[in-house]
């Protein structure tokens, strides 16, 4: 395209202004809060930070968060791949309904998601009596927290894979099948290598949300210290107890996990782009 000199200069100015605006917004909304968290977390020195993070209730919260994530992410990876496979490679009756259902957790407020589980598994809920008779506990215990996290993080993997798999179509799989490969072999040798970067990206996003989820988990947690408090809930409790340094120390752990996630995500994106090229 041909452009006049004046227009070019104008374009340069506009670009600079846009960049400055974006940097200001990112600085104010992302960098500044992150800095505040770190400053507050280490305001009592690193020893106090280490003591706050190693304290038994904080350790309980960290362990619970890791355990919940370790259950929710693999399960949602399997569900997500299955859902995306079905939705992208096949045309069937009820497909758009299934597509809507996959998106449902994005549309429903996390607090409502938590309340749904209370209504279903709570003492006076649909299965409450049945569970109580067998001495099983879902709500206000680890299983409830895992369920709520599963629900909230369900769409991440599937949503990442559906467009990718739709775009790739099913020719390669059909070729593999016609050459005599079994279904599983086709999946592992053809489908999986094609989607691996998208899948990894979805897993990372799912993982970040699973560790950071607050609303849904808060409703089903019961807030028992050192037992059903995940890391984000523990931060809130500490903050409410005027224990600001410890609250920010735990918050800095979550922030650290977020930063690691972002770095992983960037690496995955770069690798994915290089593979595609």
């Amino acid at each position: 395209m041909k452009r006049g000199k004046g227009r070019n200069r104008k374009g340069w100015l506009a670009n600079a202004a846009l960049c400055a605006a974006a940097l200001t917004v990112i600085g104010a909304l992302v960098v500044l809060p992150l800095g505040v968290i770190l400053a507050e977390a280490f305001s009592g020195g690193w020893r106090l930070w280490a003591a706050s993070v190693a304290e038994p209730e904080a350790r309980g919260a960290i362990l619970l968060t890791l355990a919940v994530t370790a259950l929710a992410v693999p399960l949602n990876t399997v569900f997500g791949v299955a859902a995306a496979w079905a939705l992208a490679k096949f045309r069937f009756r009820g497909r758009s309904l299934l597509l809507t259902l996959v998106d449902l957790p994005f549309a429903v407020s996390p607090v409502i998601a938590g309340l749904i589980f209370v209504l279903v598994f709570g003492r006076s809920g649909w299965f409450g009596g049945w569970l109580a008779e067998r001495g099983l506990k879902v709500i206000f215990g680890t299983p409830g927290i895992v369920l709520a996290t599963l629900f909230v993080t369900f769409p991440f993997v599937a949503r990442e894979l559906i467009p990718l798999m739709s775009e790739q179509g099913s020719e390669e799989e059909q070729a593999a099948l016609s050459l005599g490969a079994s279904g599983w072999k086709t999946f592992f040798k053809v489908t999986l290598p094609n989607i691996k970067w998208g899948l990894l990206y979805g897993i990372i996003l799912c993982n970040a949300r699973a560790m950071g989820e607050f609303g849904a988990v808060s409703v089903v947690s019961g807030h028992i210290r050192g037992e059903t408090l995940t890391l984000p809930l523990h931060v809130e409790v500490l903050y409410n107890e005027y224990n600001f340094t410890a609250a920010f120390a735990c918050a800095s752990l979550l922030a650290g996990l977020a930063v690691v996630t972002i770095i992983l995500k960037t690496v995955v994106e770069l690798k994915g782009a290089r593979d595609a090229a």
């Binding site: 209370v118 109580a132 206000f140 019961g222 807030h223």
Partner: peptide, 8 residues
């Protein structure tokens, strides 16, 4: 409310 809903 939590106890009514099943917090033990």
């Amino acid at each position: 409310r939590s106890v009514i809903d099943g917090l033990d």
